[in-house]
Amino acid sequence: MATVSHTQTYRRKSWGAVFFILPLLILVVIGFDIPIVTIFNYSISSADGYSLDNFYELVTTPVFAKVALNTLRITVMTTVIVAIAGYILAYWISTLPKTGRMIALALVVLPFWISVLVRTYAWIVVLGNAGIVNKTLQSLGLTAAPISFLYNDLGVTIGMANIQLPLLVLPLYAALIRVDQRHMQAAASLGASKRVIFWRVFFPQTLKAYLAGIMLVTIVSIGFYITPAILGGGRVPMMSNVIETYINTVPRWELASAIAVILLFVTLGLFAIYRRLENRTGDEL
């Protein structure tokens, strides 16, 4: 009882929640919410008042469907690569001794904090026709002519996967080390093989965190702008790049806004799924 009454006094006498939240709320409303509403407004306006003409144009023009497919393809390829390589890496790190873990984790975290531009740019040096990969392949006699890694789907996917990996590995690692080792010991004592222990006992316990991580990578991939802009050579447009073109080159802001609104809803939808997965993971632990 005493605690409750103190809390109440404490609450009443303080300046209230409004004081803490209002400054940021004002800033976010003016500097974010109103701008977002503005593009909503643009997306449904046409020469003669409000209409869905812009969305109609997007749906009926085949090239936009192609861009949407392109975005989906790159996103899926990136997510699959990150999902497979990321799980293996996170798993391996979780089996290392303490020092090894610290070093490996530091190496995963480091690029996470280095400018996306720097990491994207490096691939031009690595993957170019005169880059180290092609030079190595040629000096080993594996290829006669340089392989084109850059300015196509492959280059964009490699660049994006590199940037997204830590996003999956870090939360997944956290989930992996929380798995109770006694479950596996119990399974082993009952005579289960290593393979069975992993797939039947270990993996299911990490599945939800894994799916949440995969969703996160998907969400970030679908809105990527920098990497396709630099490594795509103008041939691998994703939705973000098309928005930029319709703002800067063509000036058709209404159409750009309509694409942005679609992308916004897709992202929010994916995020809702992510939140659900993440919350469930939280409940179980």
Partner: peptide, 10 residues
């Protein structure tokens, strides 16, 4: 310009 952008996306 509009036609060019459509070509560009394709």
């Amino acid at each position: 310009q509009t036609r060019w952008q459509e070509f560009a996306l394709n």
